[in-house]
Design a protein around this nucleic acid. Structure first.
Length: 554
RNA sequence: GCGCCUGUAGCUCAAUUGGAUAGAGCGUCAGCCUCCGGAGCUGAAGGUUGUGCGUUCAAUUCGCACCAGGCGCACCA
């Protein structure tokens, strides 16, 4: 990596400089790529950092350091890669030579689909738990955003060398599943013409009626009597049925889980009791008002939490505490929970529990995904889960397709609310960012096909012919990609990939407009084909991380 | 009342984690097809970064206090 070489070079030049000794150390050295291209390719603010201890004006110091570096450069093999070192406003700017810039396409060509990957994760076992929607309804747009996010984040972590497991936690027992059973049962009774009062907290969505019809087709009137045993049949059948629907929808959305973890199985395994025992032995449980409490305030929660109600039942968090213990016992070093915004009151509880169980607080990271607001004809689409009226993942998929849905849902960082314009996502025009990026990929594919030049010939192209400004800009853009992938993993958010791909696509379209790829000049044609094949590769690598397809034709 | 998230161009959002003249897309206006895909490109206009203090050589970024919007504050799940 050229950055590493430059950092080493500056480091040794400054360390050797007597007038600076005692004031410089490597930690002060930060390299960045300036956003303004006229400031060169790589810059450092070292003069600002050293100005104070040296009691000097940063501007003068930058000029001084530039001179030191320039004369050191004259004797360094790096001089063929760095074109110049110039101070400006206290910054020290360096320009890379065309040759050094060009180097990136050789790397892309050689690494192919692996370009941009890193081993920063060093095989660390990471679990990403996401969606985990209760099987009491179909998936909503909120789940769609969580699904796209979790899946893409998993891809990004894998690309950075983490060993990732995608997991879905199934809430397949408890109050809400009982309510589901009752709701189906009530619709069933209506179906056979009985006057039956619908449960007050029941699920009112239309799908429950459809399920009742299905149920009756399958079992007839065998479970007509309102007994606890029969209601359980409705609950379990409904839960299985909906879980299947959810699995199908997720597959159509391109999301595959490695593990489907059943809460019911957790309950029967005795792990919940085991977990409470552990907490009890640590003296972190106490009884009060007939209930059992967990001293979560000892670990930063704002109040202690009930883990076992006075009626003997567990609260919502209790199985979750056991579940998190189980995660760590399965060897995950890092656990990422992706949740909706209605769960943020829950972060401190889980973090407290994880610490109480003896794991570091940082081992679990809870990411809250803000809601996406759908817009149709410029109007926000109102949603209410209670009334069973919400836009489902299925509807969004049917309306705009997988690629546009995933792209749009990942465009903003997780912490930001997101506006999703369904009309825009459907448009096959320049206004639609997903088409803009895919179009660049398709256009390149089309040019390469039209050129009829063999890969072998492209491999042997004379890259020295690539020196037009638009070509150098493409090199500069391509160079950024590995850093973007690394940063996305570090920030645990895929949105930067999108921003980057839009910039790369724009950079390519400009190049395309500036001059032709296929010309009379065979050598130049080959060199340009080499370049655009690399652009296509990086577009494809990025889109793949997002789970968006890379069409050769549109 | 307490906690979390958000506030940047008319709209939707960026800004390399504290750097240089705050950038894109859409929309508006003005241009570009004898040409590998015009599903594209070029240009113009558009800003007191919600407000006010503070820290710093440097603040959209950090701290404090306000203002506005969203969400959450159960022995519900």
């Amino acid at each position: 990596m050229i950055e590493k070489k430059i950092a080493d070079f500056i480091d040794s030049a400054l360390s050797d400089e007597a007038s600076l000794s005692g004031f410089y150390n490597r930690d002060m050295l930060i390299l960045e790529s300036p956003k303004d291209p006229s400031h060169g390719d790589i810059a450092t603010n070292i003069a600002f950092r050293m100005a104070k201890p040296l009691k000097k004006n940063p501007k003068d110091l930058a000029e001084n350091i530039s001179k030191i570096l320039s004369s050191a450069l004259a004797m360094s093999p790096l001089k063929i890669e760095i074109d110049g070192i110039e101070p400006l406003n206290g910054f020290i700017n360096m320009c890379l030579s065309a040759g050094a810039l060009r180097d990136v396409i050789k790397q892309v060509r050689a690494a192919g689909t692996k370009f941009g990957m890193s081993d920063t994760g060093k095989g660390t076992k990471v679990q990403v738990e996401f969606v985990s929607a209760n099987p009491t309804g179909t998936l909503s747009v909120a789940h769609a955003r969580q699904a796209a996010f979790g899946d893409s984040l998993s891809n990004i972590l894998s690309a950075n060398g983490y060993d990732v497991t995608r997991e879905y936690y199934i809430n397949d027992e408890g109050v809400q599943i009982a309510v589901l059973g009752r709701s189906i049962y009530a619709r069933y009774r209506e179906l056979i013409g009985d006057k039956y009062e619908f449960p007050e907290n029941g699920y009112r969505g239309e799908y429950i009626r459809e399920m009742a019809v299905r149920f009756r087709e399958e079992y007839g009137d065998r479970y007509k009597a309102e007994t606890p045993e029969n209601l359980k049949v409705y609950s379990e059948w409904g839960c299985d049925y909906l879980l299947n629907e959810i699995k199908k929808e997720l597959l159509d959305f391109g999301v595959k889980f490695d593990v489907w973890f059943s809460q019911k199985a957790l309950g029967t395994s005795g792990k919940i009791e085991g977990t409470l025992d552990v907490l009890d032995k640590k003296g972190l449980l106490y009884e009060s008002e007939g209930a059992l409490w967990f001293k979560s305030t000892m670990f930063g929660d704002d109040k202690d939490r009930v883990v076992k109600k006075s009626d003997g039942a567990y609260t919502y968090v209790t199985p979750d505490i056991a579940y998190h213990k189980d995660k760590f016992e399965r060897g995950f070093k890092k656990v990422i929970d992706i949740l909706g915004p209605d769960h943020h009151g829950y972060i401190n509880r889980i973090k407290a529990a994880v610490q109480a169980l003896g794991y570091p607080a940082g081992a679990v990271n809870i990411i809250i995904i803000q809601l996406a607001t759908l817009y149709k004809n410029g109007q926000p689409v109102k949603m209410s889960t209670r009334a069973g009226e919400y836009i489902t993942l299925r509807e969004v998929l049917d309306e705009v397709g997988k690629d546009a849905a995933r792209f749009f849902l990942l465009m903003r960082k997780a912490s930001a609310h997101l506006d999703f314009d369904l009309e825009l996502a459907k448009k096959q025009t320049q206004e639609n960012p997903v088409f803009y990026v895919q179009y660049a990929h398709a256009r390149i594919s089309s040019i390469i096909a039209a050129a009829k030049v063999s890969e072998g010939q492209i491999d042997k192209a004379d890259l020295g012919l690539l020196c037009a400004p638009e070509e150098l800009n493409l090199f500069r853009e391509l160079r950024q990609y590995p850093a973007i992938v690394r940063l996305s993993a570090q920030e645990e958010d895929p949105y930067r990939i999108i921003t980057y791909l839009q910039a790369l696509a724009a950079c390519f379209h400009k190049f395309y407009e500036a001059d032709k790829v296929i010309t009379e000049d065979a050598a130049l044609t080959e060199a340009r084909l080499y370049l655009i094949s690399c652009v296509r590769q990086v577009l494809a690598n990025g889109l793949t991380l997002l789970g968006v397809s890379c069409p050769a034709k549109m």
